[in-house]
Amino acid sequence: MMKIYRLFCGLALSGLLCIGTASAGGVHYTISASTHFYTDQAGQLAGMHMNWVYDPEVSAFILDGRDTSAAGLAQVAEDILADLDELNYFTALSIAGAPVSLSQVSEYSIKLTDQQGLQLGFQLPLAQAVAVDGKTFELVLSDPDATADINYNGVERLRLAESLAEQCAAPTLQGRSVAAAEHELTVQTVTIACE
């Protein structure tokens, strides 16, 4: 009888711990992204126009106690971009396998969506425009702390400038699961092959 009781208690404890492990976690949030790759006058890849929609929960966190007028939101955008600058804008771009340096963001817009999510648009220029003909370039958006889950909801969220669209295949999107400390998130890789 005692053995059965011990076995039951052991199973109950391990079950509880498994549930605890599965449900444990800190703050996590999602960003729904879309990107437009733009070129300079010579048709070289010059940067990306990003549009990120934060989920309403994290938007409420960020906006808690902040002024939500147009001027207040502009200050919020500046704060977000200042922090993102230190984190390389969660963006890793590589052309033919070589990482590409990014410049600081100077143009941005911000608004609240109908679902009270923050929608941040910003132009992320490359440090130097790059010719992409005959090359394949890859873009990965990921948070090194695995707090933000940044995802494209489909390839239609990726647009190429006209000159790029003429010489490059349509973007493809591949997701892979990454086990973070407390949860699992999907990191997507955008691949664009150009002739």
Binding site: V27, I62, A77, I80, D145, T147
Partner: peptide, 11 residues
């Protein structure tokens, strides 16, 4: 603490 870009104040 989670690092959320733009989070300010004493949160």
């Amino acid at each position: 603490a989670p690092r959320i870009p733009g989070l300010r104040g004493h949160k």
